[in-house]
Design a protein around this nucleic acid. Structure first.
Lengths: 146, 146
DNA sequence: CCGAGATCGTGTACCGGTTAACGACTTGCT
DNA sequence: AGCAAGTCGTTAACCGGTACACGATCTCGG
């Protein structure tokens, strides 16, 4: 029963583990690369902005940023104009990871899909997109019907 | 970049959230249904057995079992013959959830794949299976090459 | 029969994520 | 000017998962 859900979650776990292993080769933990990717694109963003971009809650970003600051990948600095805001800046170490991490990620994507033909890959992407859409709709439709 | 990985993880998150919502309607947390499913099939298993069956580490099962025992879904009892072993037994409350939870899960699977034709669903399953295989191979292949 | 090793559950310390509560700071309106 | 309301980051308490260390217990060989 629930063939698809089971297969998907098993796949999810395997991919997660593979990604984790790949990231750890560069001293990163899973998820931190997403945060870095945002900062690579543009420095000095706030936790809230990053959270929205990565589709995660703000506290998650705050905690992760704390660990990454301890690890010397980024620094936290208060905004001068609006003192509520905190802005995250890359350190040289954080900036230096860009190339290696992006490569690592590309390689993983390639390895994981290497047994698929182009057609299969296309089917997979479009079907997955539909599932994603349905699942998102399900979540959004939770509030109504008062 | 990394189209597939991104789409998959987004889908994963949406499915996870949807499953969580569904389970909470019955007072369960995500993941607990897997543990219950094992016990529904056969009572009195050990944390180690369950961990292997669900493909999770033993401490994860121990912690979850603790919470579920507190919630009155299962009870823990030491094995008489081998005192190292602990066996988990369903309470009436835990047993009663079987029908509702299995239905909930089937409904979710159906809703999430309802926009797929049979062909699409078949393609999705087989492609996902290949990805799963590749990812698993990647993990297994971490040790060698000394 | 007894000690070395294997086995098993548990505790601790992590990571990543969530929701809810909180305090500090801005803004907007009177 | 000053206060109410909104915005923002942080903290705390959860859940699920991992790796690692530990102590209790069983088993098997001498």
């Amino acid at each position: 029963m629930t063939e698809f859900l089971d297969l998907h979650s098993r796949t999810s776990k395997a991919l997660r583990a593979a990604a984790e292993a790949g990231m750890q080769r560069h001293g990163l933990h899973l998820g931190q690369n997403h945060l870095l990717a945002i900062l690579w694109e543009r420095d000095g963003r706030t936790p809230g902005e990053i959270a929205a971009a990565v589709n995660v809650t703000t506290p998650a970003v705050v905690k992760m940023a704390g660990r990454m600051a301890d690890a010397g990948l980024i620094t936290r600095r208060r905004d001068d104009r609006d003192n509520r805001l905190v802005r995250l800046w890359l350190t040289d170490a954080g900036r230096a990871l860009r190339g290696p991490i992006e490569t690592e990620r590309r390689v993983l994507e390639q390895k994981v899909t290497e047994n698929l033909t182009d057609t299969e890959r296309g089917h997979l992407m479009s079907a997955l997109a539909k599932v994603y859409q349905s699942a998102s709709d399900l979540l959004g439709g939770t509030i109504p019907a008062g």
